[in-house]
């Protein structure tokens, strides 16, 4: 295997909301008013090789966006570290953080919110590289024009404002803006989720072309399993802030090992499978403020036993290149009877 370019080592991220004065006063009578902690990420470790596209999949509250933001240097992790080419992203709070975080660029879900409506497209694209001195000033204009053409737009669009573009075109502009920084790693956070299916296909094709031409390394965060399968080499499944399964895409889709992954696949409607086949997961996603003890999935898991309720399953190998965090895989559970 090639040397990983991006290493995420035991990253945890907690968000704590401290109550205001009024709440603390009220709390004296009601017993409330205590700080509330959201466990957004718990002990997540991943490695991403150069040129690899890693998919991150999960439902709302699973921490996939938080992970993307930690990698992009927007949030500092509560514990653990993220290193890019051997240098820590998280620790670079001063000075160096500029240089490093420009090497990770994010593309967001909503291109209507992510582009400044008052800035011409050309200015939007030029702002970052100019500020960071990535492109020599006299070459900015030609580079921007070349970038627009690279993402399938016309060079003349540089003089237009975002409202003159459709959603799909805006997402192309957002991609061009990320590429203008010549990043080492791209983080795409639900980048095609808000697009219509015909436009989504266009943007996915563009992404695959760019990846091929530029050798991009990317984290592709999505809730859409069919999109992820199409563009990703490896896929990480997350549930309630933890990594539950990590495998090459073909292996994961052919043979999902974690009960949550299986349930997720079963509950997703697919075109052409016929009518009325929903094998739904029971129950709801628990709150990340008070995650259940033991395995976070146990209240919804058909195989859960006493061990699952008490002990958090570790990520263990389930093949040469795949890992899964489930007591089933640990030899401690009988599929029929549940965990011993």
């Amino acid at each position: 295997m090639t040397v990983p370019i991006l290493m995420i080592d035991a990253v945890s991220k907690r968000f704590t909301r401290r109550p205001g004065l009024a709440e603390r006063l009220a709390g004296k009578f009601t017993g409330g008013g205590k700080p509330v902690t959201v466990h957004a990420l718990t002990d997540v470790s991943l490695e991403v090789a150069k040129g690899e596209v890693l998919g991150i999949v999960g439902e709302s509250g699973c921490g996939k966006s938080t992970l993307g933001r930690v990698i992009a240097g927007i949030h500092a992790p509560t514990s653990g570290s993220v290193t890019l080419n051997g240098q820590q992203i998280a620790d670079q709070r001063r000075g160096n953080i500029h240089k490093l975080t420009t090497q990770v660029q994010m593309i967001h879900q909503d291109p209507f919110a992510s582009l400044n409506p008052r800035m011409k497209v050309g200015e939007t694209l030029a702002e970052g590289p100019r500020y960071h001195g990535i492109i020599p000033a006299d070459q900015v204009r030609t580079r921007i024009r070349a970038l627009l053409e690279q993402v399938g737009l016309e060079a003349a669009y540089a003089d237009r404002l975002p409202h003159q573009f459709s959603g799909g075109q805006r997402q192309r502009i957002a991609i061009a803006r990320a590429l203008a920084m010549q990043p080492e790693v791209l983080v795409l956070d639900e980048a095609v989720a808000s697009l219509d299916v015909s436009i989504q296909a266009q943007v996915l094709n563009l992404f695959m072309d760019l990846r091929h031409d530029l050798g991009l390394t990317a984290l592709f965060i999505s809730h859409d399993l069919s999109v992820v399968r199409h563009v990703c080499d490896r896929v990480a499944i997350m549930y309630l802030g933890r990594l539950v399964e990590l495998a090459p895409a073909d292996q994961l889709y052919a043979d999902p090992r974690h009960p949550y992954t299986r349930a997720l696949f079963a509950s997703i409607p697919t075109v052409g499978t016929g009518r009325g086949r929903f094998e739904a997961i029971k129950g709801e996603i628990p709150s990340p403020i008070a995650p259940p003890p033991g395995c976070a999935f146990h209240p919804r898991c058909p195989f859960a036993g006493p061990r699952c309720r008490a002990e958090v399953p570790r990520l263990t190998t389930a093949g040469p290149v795949r890992t899964v965090a489930c007591h089933l895989n640990d030899g401690g559970v009988d599929m029929q009877k549940g965990a011993a």
Binding site: S166, A201, Q202, L204, S226, R229, H230
Partner: peptide, 24 residues
Amino acid sequence: QGLLDSIPARHEPGRKLPQIPGST
């Protein structure tokens, strides 16, 4: 036909997706 063709699940992973050109 174009809509159905643009669904990734109906194609070999990594292949280019048939796309409807232009926009609505």
